[in-house]
Nucleic acid binder design. Sequence first.
DNA 1: ATCACGTATGAATTCCTATTCATTTATTGA
DNA 2: TCAATAAATGAATAGGAATTCATACGTGAT
Lengths: 134, 134
Amino acid sequence: MARPRKTDQLAAMTDLVCDDRVVHVDAVRAARAALPEGPTLAGLAEVFAALSDPTRLRIIAALAQNELCVCDLAASVATSDSAVSHQLRGLRDLGLVRSRREGRLVYYALDDAHVTALYSQALDHVGHPTTEDA
Amino acid sequence: MARPRKTDQLAAMTDLVCDDRVVHVDAVRAARAALPEGPTLAGLAEVFAALSDPTRLRIIAALAQNELCVCDLAASVATSDSAVSHQLRGLRDLGLVRSRREGRLVYYALDDAHVTALYSQALDHVGHPTTEDA
DNA sequence: ATCACGTATGAATTCCTATTCATTTATTGA
DNA sequence: TCAATAAATGAATAGGAATTCATACGTGAT
């Protein structure tokens, strides 16, 4: 069933876990107990991934100021309408952004306080110079 | 030099910015003023990217409990030593993690309060069930 | 010195993601 | 109805990223 282990405790731990050797059993036990569950982990990764792209960060920073229509958003963050639209779709699928149509224009706004909070916290930590500070 | 614009104000804005049409000049101006500068933006994206991968997230969650050597870390997060080592290099290059050698073992620990704070804030927002809650 | 073990590294593979370009849909005005 | 504009979408391309496998490095023990 398994190969022999150095100690019973160790064997119990590693069998419970995986095939690798464990040095500090208690530390590993504690670490594993602290791991978020699969869905939680995936959710975290998703949110952070949304914030991991410069274009999306600019979009979020822009929308943190005003609601904006797609073309204004594109002009604001200096990318193509299409690229912005693609990104907005992703952000909307994640529930981070909401849209509202008015005539031919579609306005987007932030729709998730968590993400906004994460963004500004990160900005605080980094120190937040903007173009208006120049 | 450029194509005709609907208004002078609009023309001034767009020339200052890019080649796209702008609908709400003031909104765009405000949005652009709020954009973080290039290096800041890149730094933000980097940090969030570090948190955007499930494996790295598990590593961070594990190290939030104890300092761990590579093989214990691998056992904790249930991936190969090699994969963990690769990820640790990245995290160390970003200054998120520090290492300490003791004999043949190398212990890693978290080394950036910002990231730890971001992680736990995100965890709070999501709600944080772990395996020990079961 | 040699061996075993823990860790690190490089190359290769595979998967994912962001942008671009072309096209389509939706809405308004002529 | 037709033309024009804003936005969305799909396919394609290109770049990046994570894991695996093989191998090398560093350290301690025999």
